[in-house]
């Protein structure tokens, strides 16, 4: 099917929003990073809203959107409610900061937003796991959605912290360690996805490993998904964790290039998914 660009950006923006909030929530739970809890949460909400807007643009008849509300058995309806609940917890967390609520209540709200956000990101990828499309029928797909979009979100907040000079070394270090873990996990997941493609129970040239490893999608995969989406961010992260004397990159450069690279990589993987996403039977 055609690439659904609005959904590509929906999943990426929502995941990035949750990635931003994840770092805020974890630093809240760690009792650190007070200076950017409010601004980080607002950035997170803005990203979630932008994602929601992209999803809205995807609909051909948004004026009939109310029909979604009562249809709880549909995974799309469930996802919508999950997004609303996540947004609500983040909003409540912002309110709690504003009214200077107790530390415990802020921690509880941050924790709830984090848990529902993580569920939302995973679920937004899980929606595409259809037996109908053999190249999508794997849990590796939502996991790669998860790692790619959360990485983007963490780079966004890292850049914001550095831009506003709100630096708390412990949090920056934690962000970089989280990024390295996510990106290493993503590389393992990508290897797993290639293995999955090669062992698919419904083989077809349109979704074969051959398209990715020597066919028309080879350059796209290696340049977009691997080089830009994985190698560049990993290089930036390791530059930040262990800078070489005289060759260290400025933190803002690391943040900005990291945002761009993870954004391109996230779009590239999602695009690849559509390009490989042919149905079990041709029509």
């Amino acid at each position: 099917m055609e690439i659904q660009w609005h959904l590509v950006f929906y999943t990426l923006l929502v995941g990035a929003g949750v990635g931003v909030f994840a770092l805020v929530a974890i630093s809240e739970l760690m009792g650190k990073g007070k200076q950017y809890h409010m601004s980080g949460s607002i950035i997170s909400l803005v990203l979630l809203a932008l994602g929601g807007f992209a999803s809205f643009l995807h609909l051909q008849h948004p004026e009939r959107g109310a029909n979604i509300l009562g249809n709880f058995q549909s995974p799309i309806t469930q996802e919508m409610y999950l997004a609303v609940v996540t947004g609500l917890f983040i909003l409540l967390y912002i309110v709690m900061i504003k009214i200077e609520a107790s530390t415990l209540s802020k921690k509880v709200m941050a924790g709830l937003g984090l848990v529902f956000g993580i569920l939302l990101v995973f679920f937004s990828g899980l929606l595409y796991v259809f037996p109908a499309r053999p190249a999508w029928n794997t849990l590796l797909l939502p996991l790669i959605y998860f790692t790619s979009s959360l990485s983007l979100g963490i780079f966004v907040l890292y850049s914001w912290i550095r831009f506003k000079k709100l630096e708390e070394k412990a949090v920056s270090d934690f962000a970089m360690k989280a990024l390295s873990a996510l990106l290493i996990l993503q590389s393992l997941l990508l290897v797993g996805y290639l293995v999955f493609l090669s062992a698919n129970p419904y083989p077809d040239p349109t979704r074969s490993i051959g398209r990715v490893m020597g066919g028309d999608l080879t350059a796209f995969f290696w340049l977009g998904v691997v080089l830009v989406g994985l190698v560049v961010p990993l290089f930036l992260v390791f530059q930040s964790i262990k800078p070489k004397a005289g060759h260290s990159l400025p933190p803002l450069t690391i943040g900005a290039v990291g945002i761009l690279a993870t954004l391109v990589g996230g779009v590239a993987f999602r695009t690849l998914m559509y390009l490989l996403g042919t149905t079990v039977e041709k029509f």
Partner: peptide
């Protein structure tokens, strides 16, 4: 009732559904 989200198109193993661009 259809909002044209096309998830049914994705879920069909036979590719027999399509979005009618005239009516959305």
């Amino acid at each position: 009732k259809c909002i044209g989200c096309q998830f049914c198109v994705m879920a069909c193993p036979y590719g027999v559904r399509h979005l009618d661009k005239r009516s959305g």
